[in-house]
Design a protein around this nucleic acid. Structure first.
Length: 571
RNA sequence: GCGCCCGUAGCUCAACGGAUAGGGCAUGUGCUUCCGGAGCACAGGGUUGGGGGUUCGAAUCCCUCCGGGCGUGCCA
């Protein structure tokens, strides 16, 4: 449960605040309303491990030169540092730089604590208690069961799954859910399309035409063929409605089963596959519409039931129940989200959606307000769509044409480790270009191998030293001053950054931070490892460096595990 | 038309409002009697789409224009 980056920042802020009070008390600085100090990490470590531009921020309020303010504060902080107990103070020095920056140097105690935390927390390192056990549901993929999953679902799957993993480590009680749209127009069309293909199989292509708007994909033909194999040819005698209904049940079961298998292959497992039909059958949609009406948020027009969405800032009102008597997807989704919050008691709900659904966000929040649920409890992780390239050309994705590259195709060609890493390398709100050809030959090029290689390298080093009776020492036995080069200090700081990355990833709903962090950590390790011999060094130095390397191994393993990627000891 | 997202090196992406805007790929030059060369070091590459504004300080916030993506259904 440690976060030494954050602890150091807090301590820095306290030191600055105390110094401010002391300086005012000593009449060195005037009493004034000043902004709260903020700690930052300079890009260039030669400017300190931590810094604050507080003196600059105060210049206007104090009507003094920032540099002068900084010098006064600096003297008080130096005094505080020198009189504090070495065991609890994270800084060993502070100085004034530039226009008025206060630059802080970390103490040996801080560095030693980093290694100690990684050792004691082991595979739980990076777990923080930001969530305090609050229950959060992450709903993701939720692909339409009338078709196959696409490359876009490959990105959404990794985003949702790793976001859930990040939230777990941030201290939330996390639930993964897949919403199955197994009712409505699309499903009906799906059944009708299958029926026509089935009849064509029995009586020939010319016997019956695919109606306008049908699902034209090969997958529908394949399902019809499977159906024929299972049930024979006698179902030709059923009425159209009977046959369609039977085919829907059959087709959905097949497709959902396939999705489940493909996702498991992709290392994604859900706590629940929630069926839309359940909301209809239990009467919960009716009940939710009744609630909406009771609260005065609906009206009838042209034979349809409308939701007064404009009362909540939407552009226009929305149909809840069509004049045909059927509910719209939107009405059902309102009931579904009410179920998440009211029936099942989740504190937060995060929906992972493709950016083409961004128009939903305000509508959903409005509906939550309308039924008395705080809309801030519902959040959206929007993900830009994937542009798939093959042979240098864009591949269009369409369920209807069946020309799309599916998730299953992807997994046939690209190793799961690489796919999971690649799709989560960029922030969700950037368009992602996925070059199939590049991914396939990515064995040695993908950044995932770079990270795994660092891990494997350390494992084999430890193994080799062990054969010479050199084992990894305990953190308390490490002479931290033996790790005094900039590369080593930077590497330890990078290790300390991991819990902070989890926190930021959880706050920003951006798990791709972890991927970039791991690449950065691996880079720092490779640099350190190239520059510093371990085997054959002075025993004190060797043991300290070995401990450092082993700490890197441990954190790389934590991060890769979080991402659902293997951390092999050999490659 | 209106709304949301994006525009950073040849390509692809980073950068709590902070100091000289960084990494990867690609290009060029080097590094192995020694712990894994799937690695490392160095180099070239930029008016952060244009123009205003806010302030000690802007890739970041505000306005405006340009360019791209996506929405804007009694589809889901």
């Amino acid at each position: 449960m440690s976060n030494l980056i954050d602890s150091a920042k807090q301590q820095l802020i306290s030191l600055v605040e105390d110094a401010m009070r002391s300086a005012v008390a000593a009449n060195e600085l005037p009493q004034a309303e000043t902004p709260a100090p903020a700690a930052e990490i300079p890009k260039d470590p030669s400017m300190g491990d931590f810094a604050t531009g507080y003196a600059m921020a105060c210049a206007r309020a104090l009507k003094m030169q920032p540099r002068k303010i900084a010098e006064i504060l600096c003297a008080h902080i130096q005094n505080a540092i020198s009189t504090a107990s070495a065991a609890v103070i994270y800084f060993c020095g502070v100085d004034v730089a530039g226009a008025g920056y206060l630059n802080f140097r970390l103490s040996d105690a801080w560095y030693q604590n980093v290694l100690r935390d990684i050792e004691t927390e082991s595979d739980r390192y990076g777990y923080i208690d930001e969530g305090n056990g609050r229950r959060v549901m992450v709903e993701f993929v939720s692909a339409n069961p009338t078709g196959t999953m696409t490359i876009g679902n490959a990105r959404g799957g990794v985003l949702g799954d790793t976001l859930a993993a990040v939230l777990e480590r941030a201290g939330f009680d996390v639930w993964r859910e897949f919403y199955v749209n197994d009712a409505g127009n699309q499903v009906n069309l799906f059944g009708k399309s299958m029926r026509v293909r089935y009849i064509q199989l029995l009586r020939g292509e010319d016997a019956i035409e695919m109606p306008e708007g049908s699902y034209m994909g090969e997958d529908i033909k394949a399902l019809a063929a499977e159906y024929r194999e299972l049930y024979g040819e006698s179902d030709d005698a059923l009425s159209e409605d009977e046959l369609v209904e039977k085919m829907i049940a059959f087709g959905l079961d097949r497709n959902i089963d396939r999705m489940r298998r493909d996702l498991e292959r992709y290392r994604i497992k859900y706590d629940r596959w929630f069926r839309e039909t359940e909301l209809h059958e239990s009467g919960y949609v009716d009940d939710t519409m009744r609630l909406l009406t009771e609260r005065g948020h609906t009206y009838e027009k042209d034979g349809a039931l409308w939701f007064r969405a404009t009362d909540f800032g939407c552009e226009k009102d929305e149909v809840m129940r069509k004049s045909s008597g059927y509910y719209t997807y939107y009405a059902v989704d309102i009931a579904y989200h009410r179920d998440k919050f009211e029936k099942r008691g989740f504190d937060r709900v995060i929906d992972v959606l493709g950016a083409d659904h961004h128009g939903h966000t305000l509508r959903f929040k409005s509906a939550m307000s309308a039924i008395g649920i705080d809309p801030d409890r519902l959040e959206f992780a929007l993900m830009q769509l994937v542009h798939l390239l093959r042979g240098g050309e864009a591949v269009r994705m369409s369920k209807r044409t069946g020309r799309a590259i599916t998730l299953a195709d992807l997994l046939d060609e690209v190793p799961v480790d690489a796919a999971r890493f690649f799709f989560n390398l960029q922030k969700p709100d950037t368009h992602l270009e996925f070059d199939m050809d590049l991914a396939i030959r990515s064995d040695s090029e993908s950044p995932v191998y770079y990270v795994q290689y660092a891990h494997a390298r350390i494992c084999s080093l430890a193994l080799m030293l062990e054969s010479e009776s050199v084992t990894v020492p305990a953190a308390g036995d490490v002479n931290i001053s033996a790790l005094d080069s900039p590369l080593e200090r930077e590497l330890i700081k990078a290790l300390a950054q991991y819990p902070e990355e989890i926190r930021q990833a959880a706050r920003q709903l951006d798990p791709s931070r972890i991927n970039r962090y791991l690449v950065d950590l691996a880079t720092r390790f490779h640099r350190f490892y190239t520059a510093n011999r371990i085997k054959g060094s002075d025993p004190d130095v060797m043991r300290a460096r070995l401990k450092l390397a082993d700490s890197v191994r441990s954190v790389l393993c934590c991060g890769l595990t979080l991402l659902g990627i293997s951390a092999p000891p050999k490659m």
